[in-house]
């Protein structure tokens, strides 16, 4: 755990950029999760379903990127007390993603609330929600 920031309401969290989502890592995660859904590793299936021509990233991976963004800012992902998100759209192999957020409340006890998001090309939202972190 490293030093944590001193936030104020309205602060933008430093963005985390994933330059290109890696299809090979989706295969690893499919094996780790015993996830039999072929949309994560079989391009033919993705095409047959009319979903394009790139594998679809696992939703939890997208949440993991946002947690990484929070952890980088807060001095460790273990400072995340709560995170609540909705999955808004699919992420595909090769997508460029940005994760970010805004501080919405700062408590006397060190608790900090944030709006958080993950967006394709920094503009198209694929995940949005809120998080609470305990800084200290």
């Amino acid at each position: 755990m490293s030093a944590s920031p001193t936030p104020s309401v309205g602060d933008e969290l430093p963005r985390l950029v994933i330059e290109s989502v890696d299809a090979e890592k989706m295969k690893t995660m499919a094996a780790l999760l015993a996830d039999s859904n072929p949309i994560h590793w079989d391009v033919d299936t993705v095409r047959e379903l009319g979903m394009g021509d790139q594998p679809v990233n696992q939703g939890p991976n997208n949440l993991g990127y946002v947690m990484n963004m929070l952890g980088d800012w807060a001095g460790g992902a273990e400072r995340i007390q709560n995170i609540r998100v909705r999955f808004l759209d699919n992420v595909f192999a090769g997508d460029r993603l940005e994760a970010g957020g805004t501080v919405t409340a700062v408590g006397d006890d060190g608790a900090v609330a944030c709006d958080i998001w993950l967006a394709r090309d920094g503009t198209h939202p694929v995940l949005a929600g809120t998080a609470t972190l305990l800084l200290g």
Partner: peptide, 9 residues
């Protein structure tokens, strides 16, 4: 479809 996900740690 997956709806919401809320994690308390």
């Amino acid at each position: 479809m997956f709806g919401e996900c809320d994690i308390q740690q």
